[in-house]
Design a protein around this nucleic acid. Structure first.
Length: 178
DNA sequence: CCCTGATTCGC
DNA sequence: GCGAATCAGG
C-alpha cells in the first residue's frame, strides 16, 4: 500500500503523539507492520523517540515524552496555517472494529482515529487521552484536511500588520488546559 | 516470550 | 522508497 498523504499524517500524528509503532501500524490497517511504520518514520526524518535499546543513551537526560508540537497534517500549497495544525493524539486507541469501518451505527458515534480518511474533517475535539476525545468528522473542504469551519480557523491569509486582527486567536481544541 | 525502536539491505 | 529480517534492550 502506498504512503498517501493521509496515511503519512496518521503516522506522524501517532509517532509524535507517542503511540508505539505497533499501535500506529494497527491504525493504518491490517497487514501494516510496525517495521513499515518505523521504516517510514525514519525516512520521513521523524525519529528521536526513546528506544528501549538506545535507552541508556548517555546524554539522555529524560525521555521527555513532550507533548506533540507540530503539524500532523500538511498545509495546502499557498496558505500558511495561522495556527499550527492540531496534532492528533496518543493513547486514545480504540478497540478495533470487528466489522469493517462501514457506516458506524446511526448513533452519534465518536469519530476516532480509525475513522479518519480524506473525506472527513480531522479537527480534534476535546483532549487527547480523554475518553470522549474525537474528531470533527464533517465533510472536508475539497483538498483540505478540515471542514470549512475549521479550515477558517487553521488557515488564515497573512494580512498587513495594520489590518491584523489583534484579538486572541480562537482556542484550539486539543490543547493543554490552562 | 512478550514488547520496544534501530538498522540493514534486497527488492 | 519500501519493509522484512535482524539486532539489541526492557
Amino acid at each position: 500500500m502506498a504512503w498517501t498523504e493521509e496515511r503519512i499524517a496518521v503516522l506522524k500524528a501517532g509517532w509524535e503523539g507517542g503511540m508505539t509503532a505497533s499501535q500506529i501500524a494497527e491504525q493504518l490497517g491490517e497487514g501494516v507492520t510496525r517495521n513499515a511504520v518505523i521504516g517510514k518514520a525514519h525516512r520521513l526524518g521523524l525519529e528521536a523517540r526513546p528506544s528501549p535499546v538506545k535507552a541508556g543513551d548517555e546524554t539522555a537526560a529524560s525521555p521527555a515524552l513532550a507533548l506533540p508540537s507540530t503539524a500532523a497534517v500538511t498545509s495546502p500549497p499557498g496558505l500558511s496555517p495561522a495556527a499550527p495544525a492540531p496534532v492528533l493524539a496518543a493513547n486514545h486507541v480504540v478497540a478495533k472494529p470487528a466489522t469493517k469501518p462501514a457506516r458506524r451505527a446511526g448513533k452519534a458515534a465518536r469519530v476516532t482515529l480509525l475513522d479518519l480518511n480524506e473525506k472527513i474533517c480531522k479537527w480534534p475535539i476535546g483532549h487527547p487521552g480523554d475518553a470522549d476525545f474525537h474528531f470533527c468528522g464533517k465533510p472536508v473542504q475539497a483538498n483540505f484536511p478540515y471542514c470549512s469551519e475549521h479550515c477558517a480557523i487553521a488557515y488564515q491569509a497573512q494580512l498587513p500588520r495594520r489590518d491584523r486582527d489583534r484579538r486572541p486567536p480562537p482556542q484550539m481544541p486539543g490543547m493543554p488546559r490552562r
